[in-house]
């Protein structure tokens, strides 16, 4: 019997604190597997942000820093500028990255900081109990948009990949999803590519992962996967947004 799939050593043995069926766990595995398979675990420093993934410093089996809400890309900049030999990544949700931390993120991208951003877009604030996120869809009910988000009241959901694709310093940017095994494998490929680009000093890399929040969406984990596919992907189309081959240095 040959082992085809086993828990990656890129994750610690600490049980994940996520709700049942939350795809944060899948993305954690992908990041950890990518770092392990590329031989980068020993030189990796991750930034845990504020949100459901705040405890990711206990899960990724590498050095970690925990950042104030929204500031992950500033932290990553600080680390990378004094230790360019390290592989630096942030793991941020949509509240952290697209709302309170959009300035830090967009300027890190614009400087072409040679870091990798893993951006989890699940269209809601999970940790605080299901409030509206900047990425919440029009009509989507949350605890702060109880009749559904309206255009008049809160504007359209913000499309991070579309915005960041226009930034010169971005070397690689792809939006992926985790709603079936094929998408998961594709997401892993993208994450590996991002880390490879960082290793090659090509500049800022970001992977936006459409993710689920079954509990706060009020769905079963399986229905939540389906909702990503049918409701989120029309607003947030999957695919490659930027792939700049030329070198950063």
């Amino acid at each position: 019997m040959e082992v085809k799939y086993a828990k990656t050593k890129g994750l610690t043995d600490k049980p994940l604190t996520y709700c049942p069926g939350c795809t944060h766990g899948i993305v954690h595995k992908l990041v950890a597997e990518a770092l392990d398979e590329l031989g980068l675990l020993g030189e990796a420093v991750g930034i845990a942000s504020v949100g459901c993934s705040v405890f990711s410093y206990e899960f990724f089996n590498c050095d970690m820093q925990q950042a104030p809400h929204g500031r992950a890309c500033a932290e990553a900049t600080g680390i990378k500028r004094v230790r360019p030999d390290l592989t630096v990544f942030t793991y941020q949700g949509d509240g952290d990255l697209a709302s309170i931390g959009i300035a830090e993120t967009i300027h890190a991208a614009n400087r072409g900081e040679n870091i990798t951003v893993i951006f989890i877009n699940n269209a809601i604030y999970g940790m605080t109990g299901g409030q509206m996120a900047p990425t919440t869809l029009i009509g989507q009910r949350t605890t702060t948009s109880q009749g559904g988000r309206t255009l008049a009241q809160h504007g359209n959901p913000i499309k991070i990949s579309e915005i960041f694709a226009q930034i010169e310093g971005v070397a690689y940017l792809e939006r992926v999803a985790t709603f079936n095994p094929k998408q998961v494998l594709n997401a892993k490929k993208a994450i590996k590519k991002a880390f490879t680009y960082q290793k090659e000093k090509r500049g800022f890399t970001m992977i936006e992962v459409l993710s689920t929040c079954p509990v706060n969406w009020g769905m079963t984990p399986i229905d939540a996967l389906e909702w990503v596919k049918t409701s989120m992907t029309p607003i947030y189309p999957l695919g490659l947004f930027k792939d700049k081959g030329d070198f950063h240095e």
Binding site: A74, T77, G78, V82, R83, E104
Partner: peptide, 12 residues
């Protein structure tokens, strides 16, 4: 952002 860059670099 500046003070958080300080945090990152100090942590490293």
């Amino acid at each position: 952002a500046a003070i958080n860059m300080v945090y990152g670099a100090a942590g490293a």
